[in-house]
Design a protein around this nucleic acid. Sequence first.
DNA 1: TCGCCCGATGGCATAATCTGCCAATCAAAC
DNA 2: GTTTGATTGGCAGATTATGCCATCGGGCGA
Lengths: 161, 161
Amino acid sequence: MKSPHPPPLDRYDRRILELIQQEGRISNQELAERIGLSPSPCLRRLRALEESGLILGYRALVDARQLGYRLMALVHISMDRHTPERFANFERQVAALPQVQECLMITGQEVDYQLKIRVEDMDDYQQLLLQHITPIEGVSGVHSNFVLRPVFENRGVPVAP
Amino acid sequence: MKSPHPPPLDRYDRRILELIQQEGRISNQELAERIGLSPSPCLRRLRALEESGLILGYRALVDARQLGYRLMALVHISMDRHTPERFANFERQVAALPQVQECLMITGQEVDYQLKIRVEDMDDYQQLLLQHITPIEGVSGVHSNFVLRPVFENRGVPVAP
DNA sequence: TCGCCCGATGGCATAATCTGCCAATCAAAC
DNA sequence: GTTTGATTGGCAGATTATGCCATCGGGCGA
């Protein structure tokens, strides 16, 4: 999957990465056309990028609001004792909650994790917090911020020249 | 694109949404097989979901670390004067920075925005902050947290039954 | 209970796409 | 200028997508 010496990316590879980050389901033919290559080598390059692990996968972006998730929250969690077992347990429990879209271990004097959460409304949020997050062993502090407006999300990673 | 009365989702639609959030480039044939429908109606449903706006698009996930982006930071921004023009200007300037992966306007007594940033290293980060973010008109406070470990990201939106 | 009606399904045929193979091309090193 | 190696383009077979039409099934009224 991941070679020890990843070959450098030329301009074709970079164009491919840029385009499939924007249009993940673009056909190989159109991809080839846009990068100025014939379909054959274009597909070979795409497969190579997938094999190398540079392309981790493909996702459809679903409109969470249309599914009823009108509330997005950023939750900062602090843990009382910093043992590996506590962390591992917390991460496992949190991964089991589908409302938790993202979990980052971060720096901060009073904070250990930031969670990004999607729920329908405040009632849901309160229930999730009180019944599923606060009770996790080791959680000593919880601080919530709510997203007033997502200015932009899910941007592609810049592919430098 | 977005109908005023979106038709309710049945179990087929929900399965489609679940699967394409995990495998965005799955072929229609395999998708049909997995949801227990023949290719014809499966494709019709997929297209309908795209037309309705529920599926916003498709993205390839690129491994940022392999591209050299070893540092991920969460930056909290406070603005000194809360006028619409200031906000709009800030958002425009920030959207022009490819290192800024996400920009959320959030609640908080001292905070107005959270940015998620990817850079190669601390030098890059310092330069981005001092040369491109701090100078934006209206920015009065900047506070950085760094991501020690992304436990998980890019999870799909739960599609409730 | 029966029969009608509307929407959704499955299958088919055609069109488009994917994908492996081969010879030809290009670039760099000698 | 020649050789060597990798990359490309085109072609053919296999796979997939997509529009069309008859059929099926569920809900509604009689």
